[in-house]
């Protein structure tokens, strides 16, 4: 760790009494880094799974058979209208209890780790919102655009791939950005199944060192920075995919 930084925080602790030990203590710092890495990795996977589910679900809802539409409709309603924390507990404790344990030579480990369960549960939860977001994007493409494709003899598949989806994704971007941000924040819930992400790790730090206000400040800052970064990524994507004269 940079000496100047650790010296500064050590002094802050000694003179002012603000104990940011994660920035001067080597062990606490490695804990902090670990938590940050786990949080970012968790966010990445949860967001990826949710976007994948959203695109698949929305496409199936727009072209699939009726029974499939109903199943997806039910999926969306169930996961949107129940507490994400209970979903997480249900997946991890309820379903996790049914999955086999693997013998690791001497000790056993569950086949699916708590991290993976968090990805599955939160990904499915976020996917339910994304299905609706992408579907309203598809609905927002004017009916006449489909008619034009029909008149030009494009098949349903060609219409969707070349015309409807590219437009629908662009229309969905702002709502998607909002949901991705909220999903990134929701990853802190993985705390309840002991995934060592940021919230969990800093909790351990403040339990050990009794520096609650300082660590809560760090926690706030961490999420504010992450939210800002995600916002910047989406602004970049929106700029890159914007079409002169379309939207706005």
């Amino acid at each position: 760790m940079e000496n100047a930084i650790s010296d500064f925080f050590k002094e802050l602790d000694e003179k002012v009494g603000l104990n940011f030990n994660i920035f001067y203590d080597q062990y606490e710092f490695s804990r902090f880094l670990n938590g940050a890495a786990n949080s970012l990795e968790l966010m990445f996977w949860v967001i990826s799974v949710s976007i994948g589910l959203g695109i698949i679900g929305a496409s199936a809802q727009s072209i699939g058979p009726r029974w499939l539409k109903n199943i997806i409709g039910a999926y969306v309603q169930i996961f949107r209208n129940t507490p994400p924390m209970v979903q997480l507990l249900f997946f991890y404790f309820g379903l996790g209890n049914l999955t086999p344990q693997v013998d690791m030579g001497g000790y056993t480990e569950p086949l699916i780790s708590s991290f993976t369960w968090a990805v599955i549960a939160l990904g499915i939860f976020g996917g339910a919102y994304n299905v609706e977001i992408f579907r309203s994007g598809i609905d927002a493409v004017p009916k006449q655009t489909r008619e034009a494709c029909e008149s030009l003899c494009l098949s349903k598949m060609q219409t969707n791939v070349h015309v409807i989806l590219p437009l629908a994704l662009r229309i969905s971007l702002p709502a998607l950005a909002a949901n991705v941000v909220s999903l990134a924040k929701t990853t802190s819930l993985a705390y309840v199944i002991s995934v060592p992400e940021m919230t969990y790790v800093l909790n351990q730090v403040w339990s050990d060192s009794m520096n609650v206000p300082e660590m809560i400040l760090v926690l706030f800052l961490f999420y504010v920075v992450v939210v800002a970064a995600i916002g910047a990524i989406f602004t970049f994507i929106e700029k890159r995919t914007s079409i002169p004269g379309f939207g706005q």
Binding site: Q144, T145, E147, A148, V163, L167, R170, I243, G245, F246
Partner: peptide, 10 residues
Amino acid sequence: VFQQYNLFPH
């Protein structure tokens, strides 16, 4: 050809 042109904006 339609009243609203219906071009592909992208």
